[in-house]
Write a protein that binds this DNA or RNA. Structure first.
Length: 874
DNA sequence: TTTATGGAGGTTTTT
DNA sequence: CCTCCATAAA
């Protein structure tokens, strides 16, 4: 559809209309380097898209001269769409993608120049870990306490710093046997990746940097092409990514220009014969830096002005997303991080509603509250898609999912145990990888005996040994299985598989276009041929996968299996087939390798579908960059948020605080903070304490439906009872908890505080004698971390965490002694008899049969119970 | 070589 | 609670 010229004119004329002065400056500034410090919700995506659109509109840049790096593929797609919308035209040739996608694109294009197959495999972290595990075993080094996960993360850390094996070997302290062993594994790992023509996630970035540094003439192609580079979420870049950007923005020296095999267009070349460096725009917010654990270096943004002298800095502090109450909470929380630049978000939106706080008795109770609240909001006109639930760890989804299913709330879990992590899907993908990259021995070994075809470890070892002796690939060894002394059954099995793979490979190649993609690097963009070739014919990935699954009998065996789980597995394979079809539909010229690339690089947030009417569940990390009308942040407890594991890491607690900050600032209208008194993990329950972060929020910003303090005196709640109460009256919630209702409760319990309830509830400092050594160890660890932050040690500080709400303490029954046969009274369940007591310390559990509600398991330390005297029992 | 079974252990976040 | 691994038996 063509737009009337007049409309086009007015629509695209001014890309700064409606922007505030800061935003305007960020769109209009022209110079070598621009840093946009964009607080949460300050409209940075808007600024970026408008900036790109204005560069193109004013003819300062061709679309093909723009490289924009986003954090997720989803964000990339959105940005492209918005730019095209602004321009009213397609923006052919513009690179908008993640770091990883952009690097894969470059690597695929250049791979053959440095000895790699174009169709190299991308190893995800699980693949890397599996390989490392194999290596450790193979080298017989597992006795040194080298764990695959540990080694993997150490290698990853080194690679993020652009330290390769040789560089590491130079600096390593080789007198330490552990370092020695690690080095050995690292070296072998590098060799194996090399041999398999595979890159791990970190290589994708690092190898491009090496490539550019070793081949200046290759670097020059990209340096010349990308004149405007924009990087979003710059605070989360690691050193390798930083170096990549540095390389890309480097000027091309006159010598390289002169030595080029072709003529650069005269207009690209400066007076001194060089090609000037590209202009760089970075956007970031150091308060939202949450990826230090994977090497993100906050200094990249903090020291930007030093790295790029003369850089323009624009601050965006006006928030267009959240209400003032939400922002005030966010500001208050983040101001507890001491080493930050002062920055205060403000909004013109108005105060808004208070934040809602809720403390559940258990994780299930918390989930129940959230489900109820979602239903309520939905009745008030919130679409399901307007609501999201965040949590710190993926494990927390369970309780939520259970209740959402029961309540019929449509939801979607982002990330977590992903589709592509399932064994059968990994098998199917391994088949495809084997077809695309015959050198990938690990993919090959994976499918060697999946489905079972009688090729066991012995046979595998023989093949492998033969390959080594003959200096051929594993794949070739399979083709020559006849030369080994296998029995007829095994031999045919191997040759069969080999034949199927060969045929699949020929299928993939027969349709493959010799698509040299190099056109968009042509020195003269005007001379570039149109990228589309109407006659390309590609064998659809689905055909290849379908063939493989059928010929190998993989699918059939799953269908015929009597294991009920296999039915689900077969369905997953069917779904994967559907995915491949969908892929071909969206990318008619997409090859097998393209498909594999896409599959390897999906991010958690990518499968977010804002058009579907579902509540989104995700980790706080995944939530970055998103926004919702209503946000639930769950599990706001010590040990969870901040997470236990972060306590002894340098900068850990601050990063956890930023994570919380990110979560808070996702909310537009409604924010809920919830926690539970007990949390179960690995099937074991333990006591949870309110997070220190809660106390950092001014008390008047939170309306507690049920506060940590209230729970103290009142004890647990029964979700159903809660629901029943809530019926008609909207404000009846507080009332539903009213203690007056509970005639069994002594009046004194209405008062808050440690004395509330019965004598059994009087709290002891937790330094009682009942604690196990494990608890003590944890305590010591906690205390050390707390001391590092300059806080008062001990749980007493936790107890006083709530000046904010009510001076109270989580109920603590101390060493209440219970044994079989005792009669007890529970505030919700009434009276019952103790059947058994299990566990030790804080985790002692009473198994009780209540007169009315039957069997329950209670955590003695915090359950709202009291022991009845013998005289009271019958 | 495959399947069954018991025991041990489980890092938090992700491209 | 769940998954992974080692070991034993078919």
């Amino acid at each position: 559809m063509t737009l009337p010229p007049l409309f086009e004119e007015s629509a695209s004329d001014d890309f700064t209309a409606g922007l505030n002065p800061g935003q305007k400056r960020a769109v209009e500034y022209r110079g070598p380097a621009l840093l946009i410090v964009a607080g949460a919700g300050s409209g940075k995506t808007r600024v970026l898209t408008h900036r790109i659109a204005s560069l193109i509109q004013s003819r300062e840049a061709w679309p093909s001269q723009i490289l924009a790096i986003t954090f997720t593929n989803k964000a990339a797609a959105e940005m492209r769409e918005r730019v095209e919308q602004l321009l009213g035209q397609a923006s052919e040739g513009m690179w908008i993608s993640t770091f990883h996608s952009a690097c894969v694109r470059i690597l695929r294009r250049e791979a053959e120049r440095f000895g790699y197959l174009k169709s190299f495999t991308i190893y995800d972290s699980a693949d890397s870990r599996a390989l490392i595990k194999r290596i450790i075993k193979g080298l017989d080094l597992d006795h040194l306490g080298l764990t695959p996960a540990g080694v993997a993360s150490r290698i990853s850390g080194l690679k993020n710093e652009l330290t390769d094996v040789d560089a590491f070997a130079r600096t390593a302290n080789l007198s330490d046997p552990r370092d020695q062993a690690f080095l050995e594994v690292f070296r072998k790992y590098t060799q194996e990746l090399n041999r398999a023509h595979a890159f791990d996630f970190d290589d994708l970035i690092g190898q491009v940097v090496y490539l550019f540094r070793s081949f200046p003439e290759i670097a020059a192609l990209y340096q010349r092409r990308f004149r405007h580079i924009l990087v979003d979420e710059y605070q989360d870049t690691n050193h390798a990514q930083y170096a990549l950007i540095r390389e890309l923005t480097r000027p091309v020296s006159p010598e390289v220009v002169a030595a080029a095999a072709f003529e650069y267009a005269p207009r690209d070349i400066a007076a001194d014969g060089s090609i000037p460096g590209a202009s760089l725009t970075v956007v970031g917010d150091s308060d939202q830096s949450i990826y230090a654990f994977r090497g993100a270096d906050i200094r990249n943004i903090v020291e930007f002005e030093k790295d790029y002298p003369g850089a323009e800095v624009v601050l965006l502090e006006q928030n267009y997303r959240s209400t003032q109450n939400i922002l005030s909470a966010a500001n208050a929380v983040i101001s507890n991080n001491f080493d930050r630049k002062e920055k205060k978000l403000w909004t013109a939106i108005g105060e808004g509603e208070k934040i809602t706080g809720f403390t559940g008795y258990s994780g299930h109770d918390e989930a129940r509250f959230i489900a109820d609240e979602i239903n309520e909001l939905h009745n008030k006109g919130f679409g399901y898609r307007d609501m999201a639930v965040f949590y710190r760890t993926n494990a927390q989804t369970r309780a939520l999912e259970e209740i959402f299913i029961r309540e019929g709330i449509p939801y979607r879990v982002l990330g977590g145990t992903k589709f592509y992590e399932r064994a059968e899907i990994k098998d199917a993908i391994a088949y495809l990888i084997t077809v695309a990259n015959p050198y990938d021995e690990y993919a090959l070994r994976r499918i060697l005996n999946a489905p079972k075809r009688g090729i066991g470890p012995m046979t595998e070892a023989q093949l492998s040994g033969f390959a080594e002796d003959q200096q051929v690939s594993f794949r070739d060894a399979m083709r020559r299985a006849g030369e080994l002394g296998f029995g007829p059954k095994v031999r045919t099995a191997i040759l069969n598989l080999s034949g199927i793979l060969d045929h699949a490979t020929s299928m993939a190649l027969s349709g493959e276009v010799v698509d040299d993609d190099r056109d968009d690097l042509n020195p003269d963009p005007a001379a570039a041929p149109p990228a589309q070739d109407a006659n390309v014919k590609v064998t659809p990935v689905s055909d290849i996968l379908d063939y493989l699954m059928k010929q190998t009998g993989y699918l059939e065996l799953l269908r015929n299996s009597k294991d009920p789980q296999d039915e689900a597995r077969a369905e997953n394979i069917d779904e994967l087939l559907a995915v491949t079809k969908e892929f071909s539909r969206n990318n008619p010229t997409g090859t097998l390798v393209d498909f594999l690339t896409e599959v390897s690089l999906v991010a958690a947030a990518d499968d977010l579908d804002s058009t579907s009417g579902t509540v989104s569940l995700m980790t706080l990390h995944t939530a970055k960059g998103l926004e919702y009308r209503a946000v639930f942040i769950t599990g706001v407890e010590e040990g969870l948020l901040p997470h236990q594991m972060s306590a002894d890491e340098a900068g850990g607690p601050s990063e956890e605080r930023r994570l919380f900050y990110v979560g808070i600032t996702r909310a537009r209208e409604k924010l809920y903070l919830s926690l539970a008194m007990t949390r179960s993990q690995y099937g074991e329950v333990s006591v949870a304490m309110p997070s220190r972060f809660l106390q950092e929020i001014p008390a008047d910003l939170i309306a507690w439906r049920q506060s940590p303090g209230m729970v103290t005196s009142r004890g647990g709640t029964q979700p159903r009872a809660l629901n029943a109460q809530r019926g008609g009256q909207g404000s009846g919630f507080g009332g539903s908890n009213s203690y007056a209702r509970r005639s069994t409760e002594p009046t004194s319990s209405v008062g808050f505080g440690a004395g509330g309830g019965s004598s059994a509830a009087v709290s002891e400092p937790a330094s009682g004698n009942m604690r196990s050594s494990l608890d003590k160890w944890r305590e010591a660890k906690k205390a050390r971390a707390a001391a590092a932050r300059g806080e008062l040690p001990g749980e007493s500080s936790t107890a006083s965490l709530f000046p904010n709400t009510i001076t109270g303490q989580v109920r603590d029954n101390g060493d209440l002694e219970l044994q079989r046969g005792d009669r007890i009274r529970h505030t919700d369940f009434g009276e019952g008899r103790v059947d058994d007591v299990t566990g030790v310390g804080t985790k002692r559990i009473a198994h009780v049969t209540f007169d009315q509600v039957g069997n329950k398991k209670l955590l003695i330390k915090i359950a709202p119970i009291e022991k009845l005297d013998d005289s009271e029992t019958e």
